[in-house]
């Protein structure tokens, strides 16, 4: 019971993170709820993969891929390019914490410190920097995965077979 509450709590706050950025990026009003759902489920999938021992990079990749595929389907009903939905939804997964820890590490490295501390700091900085880069690459690859797989220029050319009369078959 406790675990479920924790799960739902985190799901909710992940969604809040996504719509906070959605508002900052001035998205159309009709897309806000969709972005909440995409952000919440994408982030939750990341934590599920993390809990299954997949690591932060694999977790971010699967989370972003879920967001990427879902955004293509949602784009048809919200009449907006998929990336308007996908980018705010993956922003909570952007490795901001790793990136600025790496930056702070680099700044600290320039200070006068002894050899031992330097090596330890160097190790942390490289670790954080590499993680930031690969998580970012995984996010961007995950979001563009549907387009890379289906090889279409625009999401409008992907037929969604839920409401056949609305889908275009160009």
């Amino acid at each position: 019971m406790q675990e479920w509450l924790h799960f739902i709590d985190r799901w909710f706050w992940l969604g809040m993170g996504a719509i906070g950025f959605a508002i900052l990026f001035n998205v159309p009003k009709r897309t806000i709820f969709t972005i909440f759902l995409l952000g919440a489920f994408g982030g939750t999938l990341k934590f599920i993969v993390l809990a299954a021992g997949g690591g932060i990079i694999l977790g971010s990749f699967f989370g972003a891929m879920l967001v990427g595929f879902a955004s293509i389907f949602a784009a048809h009903y919200r009449h907006t390019p998929p990336f308007v939905l996908a980018i705010p939804a993956v922003i909570p997964m952007v490795p901001g914490a790793f990136a600025y820890r790496a930056m702070l590490g680099i700044i600290h490295l320039t200070e006068k410190i002894d050899h031992e501390t330097f090596l330890k700091l160097m190790e942390e900085t490289v670790d954080n920097g590499l993680k930031a880069f690969f998580v970012l690459a995984a996010l961007s690859l995950g979001v563009s995965a549907p387009m890379l797989i289906f090889r279409r220029e625009s999401a409008k050319n992907l037929v969604v077979r839920i409401k056949p009369d609305e889908a275009r078959s160009k």
Binding site: D9, R10, W13, L14, G15, M16, G17, A18, I19, G20, F21, I23, L24, G43, P92
Partner: peptide
């Protein structure tokens, strides 16, 4: 955006 920041903190 403040709520989003709080959301990150919660996560």
């Amino acid at each position: 955006v403040g709520a989003a920041g709080a959301g990150f903190c919660r996560v």
